[in-house]
Amino acid sequence: MNGNDQVSRCGYVAIVGRPNVGKSTLLNRILGQKISITSKKPQTTRHQVLGIHTEGATQAIYVDTPGIHLAQGDRNKAINRYMNDAATSALRDVDLVVFIVDRTKWTEEDELVFQRIEHLKVPVILALNKVDWLDDKAELLPFIQKLAARRDFAEVIPISAIQGDQVSVLEQAVAQRLPESIHYFPDDQVTDRSQRFLAAELVREKIMRSLGNELPYQTTVEIEQFKYQGKTLHIHALILVEREGQKKIIIGEKGERIRQIGRDARVDMQDAFESKVMLNLWVKVKRGWSDDDRALKSLGFDDLG
């Protein structure tokens, strides 16, 4: 019990779904701040990220996961296997699962996710996201009935993560199903990730948003320096790509693209770290890093939990 004689609850909640259904957008909406990066590109999230939401006596520890996807063709590299393993491992030892689908769109990858959760013993809440994009809400009912015939979902909740519609209803449904427990994290902590990790992710987000269809998925970001000098935070970030052509794309004509990426990332960093930020970016070619297990481990892709 806490001081208000409320039952103290705490538990882990895995947010799962195929790529680009809005998992990270939902987490950021619940937390009221950016913890997971977002873009319109599939596979933006590469790591498990904990988002800790404490309200009164209840602490929900959300696990944002990479989108579970079919590993074939260009998506059958070591990094793709890592992302699928990271998402699947999040289902171990959680108290609750939120399964997100995109309205009434059902793909092979949705089926793959469903197979991963089909036999879980913990409650699964089905969240139908992006319903604000539906012209006819009546389309939802037969889709829901079809899925409900395959699994007894704890609840089915239509939401719009980006608009915030029904997200509070989802949060309440989660809170009601968390076990009685002391809180695992301080009540003011919002993530398990370091500021260095968040800085790298913010740079990568701006790369993904800037490059559109030119986006080289074989891109990652490594923070080489992260230190305060007086009231200013100095960050040196290394952008790794696999080919010279990708390096040229990121740098852009006369360096304009990388300058824009840096400007956009610095704005978000200053908000996140509540400090003036001096950001320096470099681009380096590291051939084959995304299909090299040792290289991935050295870059921090070894945190499956």
Score class of each variant (00 low, 15 high):
Met1Arg: 14
Asp5Arg: 14
Asp5Lys: 15
Ser8His: 10
Cys10Asp: 15
Ile15Ser: 13
Arg18His: 03
Arg18Pro: 00
Thr25Trp: 12
Asn28Cys: 11
Ile30Phe: 10
Leu31Trp: 01
Gly32Asp: 05
Ser36Cys: 14
Thr44Ser: 01
Thr45Ser: 05
Gln48Lys: 12
Val49Arg: 14
Glu55Ile: 15
Ala57Trp: 05
Ala60Cys: 01
Asp64Ile: 08
Gln72Ile: 05
Gln72Lys: 11
Lys77Ile: 00
Met83Ile: 02
Thr88Arg: 15
Thr88Val: 04
Thr88Phe: 03
Ser89Gly: 08
Ala90Trp: 00
Val98Ser: 06
Val101Glu: 07
Thr104Pro: 08
Lys105Leu: 15
Lys105Phe: 13
Gln115Val: 02
Arg116Leu: 05
Ile117Lys: 08
Ile117Tyr: 02
Leu120Gln: 03
Lys121Pro: 03
Val124Gln: 10
Val124Trp: 01
Val131Phe: 01
Val131Gly: 02
Asp136Thr: 10
Glu139Val: 02
Leu141Gly: 06
Pro142Leu: 13
Lys146Gln: 03
Ala148Leu: 03
Ala149Ile: 00
Arg151Pro: 09
Glu155Gln: 13
Ile157Arg: 15
Pro158Ala: 09
Ile159Phe: 01
Ile159His: 04
Ile159Ala: 09
Ile159Ser: 11
Ser160Thr: 08
Asp165Trp: 11
Ser168Leu: 06
Val169Asn: 15
Gln172Leu: 11
Ala173Pro: 05
Ala173Ile: 02
Ala173Arg: 12
Pro179Trp: 04
Asp188Glu: 13
Arg193Asn: 05
Gln195Val: 15
Phe197Asp: 10
Phe197Glu: 11
Ala200Cys: 09
Lys206Tyr: 00
Lys206Pro: 14
Ile207Thr: 08
Arg209Met: 07
Ser210Phe: 06
Ser210Lys: 14
Gly212Gln: 13
Pro216Asp: 13
Pro216Asn: 13
Thr219Ser: 10
Glu222Cys: 07
Glu224Met: 06
Tyr228Phe: 07
Lys231Met: 14
Leu233Arg: 01
His234Arg: 04
His236Glu: 13
Ala237Ile: 02
Ile239Ala: 11
Ile239Gln: 14
Arg243Asp: 07
Gly245His: 04
Lys247Leu: 04
Ile249Glu: 15
Gly252Cys: 03
Gly255Ile: 07
Arg257Met: 02
Ile258Met: 08
Gly262Val: 01
Arg263Gln: 12
Asp268Glu: 06
Gln270Leu: 07
Val277Gln: 04
Leu279Thr: 02
Asn280His: 11
Lys284Ala: 07
Lys284Ile: 03
Lys286Ile: 01
Arg287Pro: 03
Trp289His: 03
Ser290Cys: 08
Asp291Glu: 06
Asp293Thr: 12
Lys297Ala: 14
Asp302Ile: 14
Asp303Met: 07
Asp303Gly: 14
